[in-house]
Amino acid sequence: MEALFASTFAVAIAEIGDKTQLLALLLAVRFKNKTAIVFGILLSTILNHLLAAYVGEWASSWLSPDIARYIVAASFFAIALWVLVPDKADDEDSRFYRYGAFLATFVLFFLAEMGDKTQIATVVLAAKYQALAWVVAGTTIGMLLANVPVVIAGSMGAEKLPMTLIHRTCAVLFFVLGVATLLWS
C-alpha cells in the first residue's frame, strides 16, 4: 500500500503545471465531450505508465540493491530539480484534433508522457517499490487527480494557481523521497 500512496501523491503533485495538465486544459477547451477526454487520459496513462513501470522493475532487477538504491535516489533528486522548470504546451497538438476527443486525447497524452517527469517518476517508483500493479495504479490515480478537475473546470481559475509554490513543494517531495531512499532502503 505504501507504493500506491507514494505513487499517487508523487504524481498528483508533479503533474500540477506539467505539460500534460496544460494539454488537458487545451483539450477541455477544444472538445465538449469531457467523458471522452477523461477516458483518453485514463487509458493512455495506464499504457504509458505500465510500460514505464516494467522498465523500472526490469532495470532494478539487473542492478545490485546498493547500486539500484543510489540510482533511484539520484533519480529522485534529478526529478526534484526538473520539476522546478515549468512546462509549456506544444503548438503541434492541433493536428490530432480531427480524430475526436477520445483518440486525440489518448494519442496526445501518450506522446506527451514520453520522457515526461511523471513517466520518469513512474520508472523510479517501480524500481524502488518492486510493486508494478500498485505503482501503476497509484501513478494513474495521481494523473487523474491532477487532470480530471482541469478537464471538468476547463479554463476557469487555472491562472490563479500559485505555480511557483506548487513546483517548489513538488521539488521538496521528490527530494524527501530521494533522502528516504538513501536512508531506509
Rank of each mutant, 00 (worst) to 15 (best):
L183Q: 03
R69Q: 15
I46L: 14
A3S: 09
A68Q: 08
L173R: 07
F109H: 14
A74E: 14
V148C: 06
A3C: 10
F174S: 03
C170G: 14
K88A: 06
P65N: 05
D90E: 07
A78H: 03
A3H: 07
V124Q: 05
W62H: 15
I16V: 10
A68D: 14
W134R: 03
G178Q: 09
K88N: 04
A14H: 02
I166K: 00
V123N: 07
L173G: 08
M114R: 05
D90K: 01
I37A: 05
S61T: 04
A126L: 04
F39D: 09
A80Q: 11
L84F: 11
M1V: 14
A14R: 04
G157I: 00
W184M: 09
I152Q: 02
L26G: 10
A74H: 12
Q130R: 11
K88H: 08
E92A: 12
L81W: 12
A133W: 05
I16K: 00
L183D: 10
T169V: 15
F174G: 09
N147Y: 13
P149R: 01
K88Q: 03
I79G: 01
A158W: 00
F106A: 01
L26D: 06
P86F: 02
E159F: 00
G138L: 09
P149H: 02
W184N: 05
D93R: 00
G40M: 09
F39S: 12
K32P: 14
V72K: 12
A121W: 12
L50S: 06
Y99Q: 01
A80K: 08
W58V: 10
T20R: 03
T8L: 15
F110E: 03
A137N: 10
A80E: 08
K19R: 13
L81H: 06
G17Y: 00
S7H: 09
E113S: 05
D116W: 08
D87R: 02
R168G: 13
T140L: 14
L182G: 14
E57V: 10
A137R: 15
A153Y: 02
S155I: 00
K117F: 08
V150R: 01
A131H: 12
I141Q: 06
M163E: 11
L51C: 12
L165V: 13
T164L: 05
A158T: 01
S94I: 10
S44I: 04
D87G: 05
I46P: 04
T122A: 10
E15R: 01
M163W: 04
L22S: 00
A53M: 11
K34D: 04
A68R: 11
V148H: 08
R95S: 10
N48F: 15
T35R: 13
T20P: 07
L51A: 11
I166A: 06
L23R: 00
T20H: 08
L125N: 10
L165K: 06
R30T: 15
A127L: 07
S44C: 07
P65H: 05
I16S: 02
Q21W: 01
Q21P: 02
L177C: 11
M1T: 09
I41H: 13
T122F: 05
G142D: 08
G138R: 13
L173F: 14
D91C: 10
E2G: 09
W134T: 07
L43P: 12
T45H: 09
G17E: 01
A36N: 10
I13R: 05
T122G: 11
K117D: 00
F96G: 09
F31N: 03
A59G: 15
Y97L: 02
I120P: 12
L4F: 15
S64P: 14
A146W: 02
